[in-house]
Design a protein around this nucleic acid. Structure first.
Lengths: 337, 337
DNA sequence: GTCCGAACTGGAAGCGCTTCCAGTCGACAC
DNA sequence: GTGTCGACTGGAAGCGCTTCCAGTTCGGAC
């Protein structure tokens, strides 16, 4: 497409020469630093335009010792985690927040041994100026690695073990209580739950919220079945619940995907929703609007999570000490409960 | 976490000195290049270990003139496009394919003016060794920009206008015909379609498949309503179709999201699926398994798209001239048709 | 007329790595 | 012995940018 295969791109030296100034001066106008006279500045600008100069980011990175990028690291068992639209939203939020800076977003899936290794390298080589980590399992080695690498790091969701200084999370306990309270207010008394992964803070916190709500309401019935946040696991869990507790009259699923799975099982079992069995999910993903019936769910501001993580990271990179952030959840009432 | 705030990391020079060899030799063992005697190699390796040396990727990038990263660029009106789980899968595929290399994945959302600008810069500054572009609209300037930047570029889905040399796509026309043929084989004769964006190749191709199938079957009925691949647009389109063609007996939606929206509208309208109105989608996303009823759909291998785009890009970067790739689709028969 | 500080200027030293190239060293055939 | 060849070796020249610092200019206060 270019007229010559790979014409060497002009360097700052050439710009400087053409403008009749020193490279130093040229660099200064590039970074619009002070101490350049109007005349020289204009000359440099003109030379840049005439030459079609664009600054080489790698050279800049080497000289400034800044990578010009941050990483979003997504952990998990399987690259399939990304099938969960949740992450897309986080990514969108992060990406949008980065637009205002000149940092790039590098995405890492630490879902395989090889992926893990590469993340370690990323951390050690300081190939990025900061990292955001998401969906860490209980004792994910990444937690320590990130902390020890000395790279600014913010976590999405508190890791299970270990205190991390910087994170953004949603109030999972409260959200789960909202959900369960809603079911209670509907007069349900035999409320089961499909939990998320119990080696994650999210999974545990949402279960705790469920339990607290029942306890406060003085309801003795308990029925739990563990899932892993996927639709399939939601189905399996619902089947198990139905088998062991056919008398349940409501289900709180720890996320929308599992709730969708549960809905299908209930439907197949011929149990009407919400008449016979009410269902509440968690997340507020698009999918929850299109299940049958539409899902009552606890909405969390997913895009905001991505955005706020990014902002926190930027602030960290800028040398500040931001405070952890807990975002609110809101109950969205639809037809399933 | 480190014992000292920012202890300078060892450089290759220090490694070389400690190992008693030249920096050149040290570099050679790092890149396991030939012409290093066994003894020196071992000495260097030992020094690396003792010093805890890790190579500085930026310096390497500057010297080799390779960025060590490729970009996945997602175009679109709105960062919300990422809410579509489709992209998550593509990303997962790309990410997995990259694991075998030492390239990073930088993700760019060209969904705003600012985002566009940044992509342009990315291209011009050659901040990456190659790019993959997805979901370009009709006359998206990115097509030209990418081509003209002289950076290896592969497209996900043929852009509408202009020939691009490297792309991976699925056989959308054939897929849509499979879907429509299936409806025809079920005895449906009044088959409508909810199209995707008609300024994209995907949207057009799937519509063409639908039309071809009807023509070949000698069915005169035609009913189209345009959507934009979102659930919401699927609902609107379905409502319009129902208003204008209450006698339709089947619908082919150009993707699962819109099919899910259509399903809801049909349900609300009291039309049973598939008895009264059969529905077929396209994509084979997880959501299609959890609609009510589960969606018959044309599955496309989304992860593979990401993977193959990446492989094609790698091959391009390696200086080869790969051929475009068309991936097959398969009809998944579930309950909605 | 002198002096002072603020505003500029550019030479030069990096940032940390790759790689060209001129050269050394032995082994081995002749 | 001599010549040849292949396997090593390391000095030095970059890659393209930032930035420290020593120095120059110049207007205005005195």
């Amino acid at each position: 497409m270019t007229d010559e295969p790979t014409r060497r791109r002009p360097t700052l030296d050439e710009v400087a020469e053409r403008a009749g100034v020193s490279r130093t001066a040229a660099s200064r106008v590039l970074n619009n630093a002070p101490n350049v006279s109007r005349g020289k500045r204009d000359a440099v600008l003109r030379a840049i335009k005439e030459l079609g100069y664009v600054r080489n980011p790698t050279a800049r990175a080497l000289a400034t010792r800044q990578a010009g990028a941050v990483a979003l690291i997504i952990s998990g068992e399987d690259p399939a985690v990304l099938a969960d639209p949740f992450y897309g939203q986080v990514i969108a939020g992060a990406s949008t927040a980065l637009e205002e800076t000149d940092l790039h977003l590098v995405l890492c899936l630490a879902t395989s041994a090889r992926g893990q290794t590469r993340v370690e390298q990323l951390l050690q080589t300081r190939a990025v100026d900061g990292v955001m980590l998401m969906s860490l399992r209980g004792d994910d080695p990444l937690t320590c690695l990130a902390l020890e690498a000395g790279v600014p790091a913010v976590f999405g969701g508190k890791p299970l073990h270990g205190q991390v200084p910087y994170y953004v999370d949603v109030d999972n306990v409260r959200g789960a209580r909202q959900a369960t309270d809603h079911l209670i207010s509907l007069g349900r008394t035999r409320i089961a739950t499909i939990t998320g992964l119990l080696d994650t803070d999210v999974g545990l916190a949402r279960r705790r919220g469920y339990q607290e709500a029942l306890t406060l309401a003085g309801l003795p019935f308990r029925a739990e079945e563990a899932g892993d946040f996927t639709e399939r696991s939601g189905m399996a869990a619902m089947e198990a619940l139905l088998a062991h507790h056919p008398d349940l009259d409501a289900v709180f699923a720890a996320n929308d995907n599992m709730a969708a799975g549960a809905l299908r099982v209930l439907h197949r079992a011929g149990r009407t929703v919400p008449a016979r069995t009410a269902v509440v999910g968690f997340d507020g993903l698009t999918v929850s609007e299109f299940t049958e019936p539409p899902l009552t769910t606890v909405h969390q501001p997913i895009r905001d999570i991505g955005r706020e993580m990014t902002r926190m990271l930027l602030s960290l990179i800028a040398g500040e000490k931001p405070s952890p952030l807990i975002l609110p959840t809101t109950l969205i009432r639809r037809e399933s409960a």
